[in-house]
């Protein structure tokens, strides 16, 4: 598997580690424990198809990436810097 890091270019998967769904970027604002926190920490869809995940280019530029990929075909549809995506979402 290869991922095209927006900074480093096309790289072998051994340079990356996955974290899970992009949900992790959307930390709830609630001060105390709440259903939103429960969702954030524990609940995930497991789609057969397109999903967005966070991958860490730890052996490269140390960017966190938001990777859109298809869990069925293994196609990687889009890769962007998580910090860009976060700013875009905000």
């Amino acid at each position: 598997m290869r991922i095209k890091c927006p900074l480093c270019g096309d790289r072998d998967s051994r340079e990356f580690t996955p974290m899970g769904h992009e949900t992790y970027m959307n930390r709830p604002d609630d001060e105390g424990w709440s259903p939103a926190w429960d969702n954030y920490l524990h609940l995930r869809d497991n789609p057969a198809g397109v999903t967005r995940e966070l991958w860490y280019h730890g052996a490269g530029c140390t960017s966190w990436l938001r990777v859109e990929r298809d869990t069925v075909t293994h196609d990687i549809l889009r890769v962007e810097l998580a910090s860009d995506a976060k700013r875009g979402n905000a």
Partner: peptide
């Protein structure tokens, strides 16, 4: 180190 990168890039790029 990975955690700090995550916090800065994914949670608090501000």
């Amino acid at each position: 180190m990975k955690h700090l990168d995550f916090v800065q890039q994914c949670l608090r790029p501000d």
